[in-house]
């Protein structure tokens, strides 16, 4: 016969592992947006604004 404490601990472990599994699936398969990895803000020059293309 297993004690109540062991059953409780086992349930916690199962819950944590299930959580990790879900997190892993979302991390690998998720399609969330990716923040900018390269590049940055650049000041627009006056000439660039003056010659801005118009469609």
């Amino acid at each position: 016969m297993e004690s109540g404490v062991v059953i409780f601990m086992r349930r916690i472990l199962i819950a944590i592992m299930a959580g990790l599994l879900v997190a892993l699936v979302i991390r690998v398969r998720g399609r969330g947006g990716v923040p900018p990895q390269i590049g940055g803000w650049r000041k627009l020059k006056d000439d660039e604004l003056r010659n801005w293309p118009v469609n």
Partner: peptide, 9 residues
Amino acid sequence: VWLECFEGA
């Protein structure tokens, strides 16, 4: 007023 544009991905 300085306008900026973001260049990158």
